[in-house]
Amino acid sequence: MSSAQESLQRLIEGNQRFVAGRQEQSTAEMMEKRRELVEGQAPFAIILGCSDSRVPAELVFDQGLGDLFVIRVAGNVVAPSQIGSIEFAAEAFGTRLVVVMGHSNCGAIQATLDELQRPQENRSPNLRSIVDRIRPSIEPLVEAAPQSGDEDLVERAVRANIRASARQLRYGSQILEELVQSGELMIVGAEYSLETGEVDFFEGVDAG
């Protein structure tokens, strides 16, 4: 199994290929890989990303079948089911790298900002559960800069939410915390740009 730093470099290089339009994955290779994967899997990275249809991790990082263990949820929020999925992958496959990947212009972030600035009584309780998980990380930003049309506020909120999710993974699970402390796991935060296709690994990259 690759080290966390090797896995991170592999993602960086894959994203560079994606941005340049030089993807390496071919249909023939994927068919061969599919047959090999019947016996098991060994993903080199775990990705907790947003459900947004514009941010498919395998394409963004130019990876194929069996390379990434991907968990997607609106707003890349952390709930028990997400933590359990990451614990499973880290323990079962020995995967050394977890990436919490948000993206620019995130709808879940905007919905949370809207709720903080203009509360709605009739919001779906299921959607509210997502908003409530995002709220603590961005509420201080809204209090400091309450302008509803502030693009800078949205950008800072996206990153604050990514940092909060990464921190929750590091300290909200005894299993993951022990793996991080022992150097067996690295958890980093990243933001995907819808405009450029680039992924910026901006949080936790010096750890591990």
Rank of each mutant, 00 (worst) to 15 (best):
I47C: 02
E198G: 08
E198Y: 04
S148C: 07
R133V: 09
Y192W: 05
G183N: 13
A166L: 06
V78A: 06
G197P: 08
S124G: 09
N105P: 04
S129K: 11
G107L: 11
T196H: 10
L59Y: 11
P136W: 05
A164V: 00
A145F: 11
D132L: 06
P140M: 12
E36H: 13
G64N: 05
R128V: 08
A108Q: 08
A166D: 07
E24V: 08
T112H: 07
I187S: 03
N76C: 03
G40Q: 13
L141H: 01
D52Q: 01
C106D: 06
A108S: 13
V154D: 10
A28F: 14
V205F: 07
E32L: 15
S53A: 14
L176P: 02
A57G: 04
I187A: 08
L176R: 00
A157D: 00
G172H: 08
R133P: 09
E87Q: 03
D114K: 15
R118V: 14
G75I: 05
I47M: 03
E39K: 15
G204D: 07
S193C: 08
V205H: 07
I71Q: 00
M30H: 06
S137W: 01
A145E: 13
L37S: 13
E13I: 05
R135F: 04
Q174R: 00
F69S: 02
G14M: 10
I138C: 08
L127M: 15
Q9M: 10
S81I: 07
A74P: 02
L65R: 12
L185M: 04
R133G: 09
N76I: 02
V154R: 12
R10I: 05
R54L: 02
A42N: 15
A164M: 04
Y192F: 15
G183C: 14
Q117D: 06
I71C: 00
S81N: 12
A57P: 02
V205E: 12
G204W: 09
L113H: 10
I12M: 14
N105L: 07
A144S: 08
P146I: 09
Y171S: 14
R34N: 07
